[in-house]
Amino acid sequence: METKNVMIVGVGGQGSLLASKLLGRLLVDEGYDVKVSEVHGMSQRGGSVVTYVRFGDKVYSPVIEDGEADFIISFEKLEAARYVDKLKKGGTVIVNTQQIDPMPVIIGAADYPEDVLEQMEQKGVHVDAIDALSLAVEAGSSKACNIVLMGRLAKYFEMDKDKWEAAIRNSVKPQFIEMNIKAFELGYKN
């Protein structure tokens, strides 16, 4: 199997590391060779963060480069636009419609481009926009955005839904399992 590439991007503190942990575990259990690359440290302080997940028969590079991503899962609108050049032709951007102003916007040095999703669509990108924050709140916590987005990704994967749910059970603390399963379902359905 040719290597598949999933990028998870967002703003430091949004919980993208749990999403990549979940996905990584699931793919290892499926018997794939897997590489997950993340950058720690400075970028966690509210900066732009990116995690690469690659899987297939044999994976070499831990990073995803321009035109290689099958999926970009973005926790925030602007971040989807920032990394859209990594998308493969025919790839899909799954994006949480949340807007988080970066510092240049906060201090008035730049404007937040409101129509980035439309701009991407005009370039022929398949954009699957979802209000993951509201769905996460519906599931019980705004922190479950990551699992809502994983639920959305699961729709595109030819993999039994039960396996995703089992991976969730193995990745989160017992008291948060039910809430996260609900978040996953909401992402999957809506």
């Binding site: 730049a110 404007d111 937040y112």
Partner: peptide
Amino acid sequence: LEENIPVRPP
């Protein structure tokens, strides 16, 4: 994209 994406520094 033609859009100039504002940076998001830490």
